[in-house]
Computed example of a mutant assay.
Amino acid sequence: MKLALQLGYWGATPPGNAGELVAEAERLGWDAVFAAESWGSDAFTPLAWWGSATNRIRLGTSVAQLSARTPTGCAMHALTLDHLTGGRFTLGLGVSGPQVVEGWYGQPFARPLARTREYVSIVRQVLAREAPVRGDGPHYPLPYRGERATGLGKPLRAITHPLRADLPILLGAEGPRNVALAAEIADGWLAVYYSPRLAEQYNTWLDEGFGARDRTGFEVVASAQVIVTDQPERAVADMKPVLALYIGGMGAPELNFHAEVFRRMGYAAEVAAIGRLFREGDRERAAAAVPDELVHDIAIIGTAGHVREQVARWARAGVTTLLVGCRGVDELRALSEVWNTF
C-alpha cells in the first residue's frame, strides 16, 4: 500500500503550509499529493504551483468536478499538467451533487452515470489523439448541435500532443452503480469514507464493473484520517464537526450521497438525527450525535501499534493507496515512522 497526501480544497483563505507539506511528503517518499475543489479554489492550479517545486511525487485531483469544465477543457488541463510535471499527473473526476452542480455551475445534474461515461470517453479521445474528437451522446455533443448551433462546428484534434495516452483516470464514487462504473471505465476508484468492514460489498460492486476486464493495476485510493496518537479520544472528537457537516449539510436532505454512505454502514438513525440537528442550526449537537464507532469505521486513529494493525487490515481489504490529510509536517513524519516499520 502507498501513502498519498490530501491537500483538499481551500477554506476562506489558502492554507499557509501547503508548500511545506508537499515538500516534506516528497522527501519522505510519499507516492502522491492530491488537491480537491468544491465551490471556491480549483483542483488544478495548486498542483501546478506546488508541483513545480517537486521532482518525483505524483500529482492528482480528488476530485475535479465534471460540471466545472467541458471534457475537452478538462483534458487540456490534464495534458498540460502532465507535460509540465514529466508524466506525474493523475486525473481524478467526480460528479459532485445537485446543490453544487445546479446551484453553482448552473448545469443539470440528471443522469450522472451517463454523463460520466460520455465525459471520460471524450477525455480519452483527446489523450489518444488518434482522430478528431467527436461526442455522439446527448450530454457533451461534439460538434455542438443544439438549437443555437451555427452548423460551423468542426471536429478537432488537440494541437498539443499529449505526453501519455494512458494518463490514469480515477473516479470518485460512493454508490454501488458509480463504483461499478469506475471499475468498468476508469483506472481506479477514489473512495470517500471507505470502511474495510464493508470490503466484501465494495468488491462485489467492483467485480460487477470489471466483468471480464483484467483488474491488474486498478487503484483503490481511499481517503482516511490516519493519526498516530496516545489520545485517540481527542482526535475522534476533532473529526466529528466535519463529519456532521458532510452528513448534514453537504447535500440536500432528499439527496446527500455522503449521508447515504453512512446509512449503508448501518447508521441510518444517527444520520437522521445529525441531519435534523444540522438543518436546525445546532451544529454542536449535530457533531455530538456522530458516534465514535462511525469515526473508527472510516479512520485509523491510535497508537503506532494500532495504526500498523489497521493499515494492514485496509490493505487486505483491497486498498492500494491511503489518501491522508495532515495538518503539519509533524503528522507526516509520525505516520512515515510507523509506515517504515512495515
Rank of each mutant, 00 (worst) to 15 (best):
A288Q: 15
N340C: 08
F89T: 00
K154G: 00
E118V: 03
P168G: 12
A224E: 08
T204W: 04
E309G: 13
A183E: 03
D282N: 15
N178A: 14
L21N: 11
A199M: 05
G172W: 00
R308Y: 10
H258F: 14
A199Q: 04
R263N: 09
V220P: 09
R234W: 03
P176N: 12
T85G: 05
V179R: 09
E208I: 03
G97P: 01
G8R: 01
D238S: 12
P46C: 11
N203M: 11
V120E: 06
A131I: 01
L245R: 09
G328A: 11
Q201P: 03
P143A: 09
F278W: 15
A289I: 06
L113I: 13
R333V: 09
L152D: 12
L243E: 05
V123H: 01
G325D: 00
V271H: 01
M265T: 01
W49Y: 15
W39I: 00
T341K: 08
R177C: 02
V95S: 15
D187V: 11
R117L: 06
V242D: 10
A272I: 04
L255A: 15
T341R: 13
R316C: 02
E254K: 12
Y105E: 02
V123M: 05
F109S: 05
L7K: 03
S52P: 00
D292H: 06
R308Q: 14
K154P: 00
A25K: 00
G302P: 03
F210A: 11
G217C: 12
G281V: 08
R88C: 07
V123G: 01
W205V: 05
G60W: 03
M1A: 10
N55L: 07
A273L: 08
Q201N: 02
P155I: 10
I298A: 05
V307H: 02
E147M: 06
R197P: 05
R88W: 04
